[in-house]
Simulated scan of single mutants.
Amino acid sequence: MYDIMIQNLLSPVVLFFVLGVVAALVKSDLKFPAGLSEALSIYLLVAIGIKGGMELSHYELHTVIKPIAGTLLLGITIPVLVLVALLAMKMDLHNSIGLAATYGSVSIVTYGAAISFLEKKQIGYEGFMNALVVLLESPAIIISLLLLRILHKTDSGDLLNAPGTPPKLGMNFSSFMNLFDKEVLRDSLLGKSVLLLMGSLIIGWLVGQNAESIVKPLFIDLYGSILILFLLNMGLIAGERLPEISKHGWKILLFGLCVPLIGGSAGVLVGNWVGLSLGGVVLMGVLAGSSSYIAAPAALRASVPEANPSIYLGLSLGVTFPFNLIVGIPFYFALAQFTH
Results as ranks from 00 to 15, higher is better:
residue 301 R to Y: 05
residue 56 L to F: 12
residue 300 L to Y: 08
residue 267 G to Y: 00
residue 126 E to N: 04
residue 122 Q to G: 14
residue 106 V to D: 04
residue 181 D to Q: 00
residue 109 V to P: 08
residue 308 N to H: 09
residue 129 M to E: 08
residue 193 S to P: 01
residue 140 A to M: 08
residue 80 V to E: 03
residue 333 F to W: 13
residue 200 S to N: 00
residue 58 H to C: 14
residue 3 D to G: 13
residue 293 Y to F: 09
residue 27 K to S: 09
residue 224 G to A: 14
residue 246 S to R: 14
residue 44 L to T: 11
residue 136 L to F: 15
residue 165 T to E: 15
residue 310 S to M: 15
residue 203 I to V: 13
residue 20 G to T: 09
residue 54 M to H: 02
residue 313 L to G: 07
residue 151 L to D: 01
residue 80 V to Q: 07
residue 221 D to R: 12
residue 20 G to I: 11
residue 336 A to I: 02
residue 302 A to K: 15
residue 230 F to D: 03
residue 233 N to H: 11
residue 111 Y to M: 09
residue 282 V to M: 01
residue 73 L to S: 05
residue 233 N to C: 09
residue 47 A to G: 07
residue 163 P to L: 03
residue 38 E to K: 14
residue 37 S to W: 15
residue 12 P to M: 06
residue 209 Q to W: 12
residue 48 I to C: 04
residue 340 H to G: 14
residue 135 L to Y: 01
residue 292 S to P: 01
residue 237 I to F: 05
residue 76 I to A: 11
residue 23 A to Y: 07
residue 273 W to A: 14
residue 261 L to G: 07
residue 87 L to M: 09
residue 279 G to Y: 01
residue 135 L to S: 07
residue 50 I to S: 02
residue 267 G to V: 01
residue 18 V to Q: 01
residue 262 I to R: 06
residue 194 V to R: 04
residue 292 S to R: 00
residue 114 A to P: 05
residue 38 E to Y: 09
residue 87 L to D: 04
residue 2 Y to T: 15
residue 142 I to M: 12
residue 47 A to S: 09
residue 99 L to W: 02
residue 68 I to D: 06
residue 4 I to F: 15
residue 135 L to E: 01
residue 94 H to P: 13
residue 145 L to D: 11
residue 179 L to E: 08
residue 313 L to P: 00
residue 251 K to C: 13
residue 215 V to N: 01
residue 252 I to F: 00
residue 145 L to R: 06
residue 276 L to Q: 02
residue 145 L to K: 02
residue 8 N to A: 03
residue 186 R to H: 11
residue 288 A to F: 07
residue 106 V to R: 02
residue 160 L to S: 03
residue 233 N to Y: 13
residue 248 H to E: 10
residue 64 V to D: 02
residue 166 P to T: 08
residue 202 I to F: 10
residue 132 L to M: 08
residue 128 F to R: 02
residue 311 I to Y: 07
residue 142 I to F: 13
residue 338 F to T: 09
residue 133 V to P: 08
residue 320 T to A: 03
residue 271 G to F: 07
residue 118 L to D: 10
residue 101 A to D: 04
residue 41 S to Q: 14
residue 240 E to Y: 11
residue 49 G to E: 10
residue 155 D to H: 14
residue 281 V to N: 05
residue 181 D to K: 11
residue 39 A to H: 10
residue 327 V to R: 14
residue 55 E to L: 12
residue 334 A to E: 11
residue 251 K to Q: 15
residue 20 G to D: 05
residue 304 V to P: 03
residue 247 K to S: 07
residue 65 I to G: 09
residue 266 A to I: 09
residue 108 I to E: 12
residue 305 P to N: 03
residue 72 L to P: 09
residue 307 A to C: 03
residue 46 V to S: 00
